[in-house]
Design a protein around this nucleic acid. Sequence first.
DNA 1: CACAATTAAATTGTGTACAATATTTTATAT
DNA 2: ATATAAAATATTGTACACAATTTAATTGTG
Lengths: 160, 160
Amino acid sequence: MKLKKTLPPPTFSDNQTLNIDLQMCFALYSASLSMTKAYKPLLAELKLTYPQYLVLLVLWEKDAVTVNSLGERLFSDSGTLTPLLKRLEKLGFIQRQRSAEDERKVIVSLTKEGKQLQKQAASVPVQISCNTGCSLAELLLLNEQLISLRTALIKNSIKT
Amino acid sequence: MKLKKTLPPPTFSDNQTLNIDLQMCFALYSASLSMTKAYKPLLAELKLTYPQYLVLLVLWEKDAVTVNSLGERLFSDSGTLTPLLKRLEKLGFIQRQRSAEDERKVIVSLTKEGKQLQKQAASVPVQISCNTGCSLAELLLLNEQLISLRTALIKNSIKT
DNA sequence: CACAATTAAATTGTGTACAATATTTTATAT
DNA sequence: ATATAAAATATTGTACACAATTTAATTGTG
């Protein structure tokens, strides 16, 4: 059994403990919303929302996966994914079909239209990365920092 | 008129352009959701959601402000804030009242209960910062990086 | 085999996020 | 002074995010 390693609380002077400007949490939250807004007009041309685009990113990497495995990849669950996938299906980009071997599972796969969309989508992240004003090195560093932050939060946070 | 300064697109090898793991955008998105989930059980004890907590953070800094000024501070608008503020009012933490001088404006101010909540909330960000597994220096650095990312995205992104 | 436990999705209900529109009040320009 | 524009908030409609519950299929156990 591994020991759980948590750092001691960083100490702020009392006045600043709740200062919103100093709180990385709010910076994270507002930066994430700004990012989604930045994607919106670009993805709108493909008739996609940002979460729908994320699902397609996963499928473009590996087609025909279950709802569960999509959820693990995207840190999401069926409560979010099921209605989202139904919308993607209605748009004609994916198919949802029960697995023949295990009828509990639903296999999500790309349609021809969904596959074709990948080419059009290729320029989207490039355009966004320009808007960040960050260099490639900065983007990669930030990516790693955010992934380890996410990992730590998932590991150390109590589940209700 | 200032020249708009945007960096040239970072170049990825073609195969990796759409790799979800390499996309800082997804790391940002998923880390932000993880952060909100980490806050959830702590804020639930105060009967607050994370966006409601953000509103109170602003009010604890400066009480009695308009919906607009709250929105500027939180990068949000009346479409989001109005229903949220109504819930906070129903919970008894804030008051909403039309300004006497300018009846278009709504002044949001803390109730006694809302002010008292600040003491109970003090331990929340401390607990969260432990869960991040980051040192104070790392948190401050990440905070700055995210703020400049947000600033760049707001400046450089086209609006619809 | 029977039946409880587990697993996979779907459903329900609450709370944002946000674009688009509406409403009300104030400011401005003839 | 009156129409017009602008400003501040509210409303409407769509799309998540997520906890909690439900439904259906499969697995494990006696």
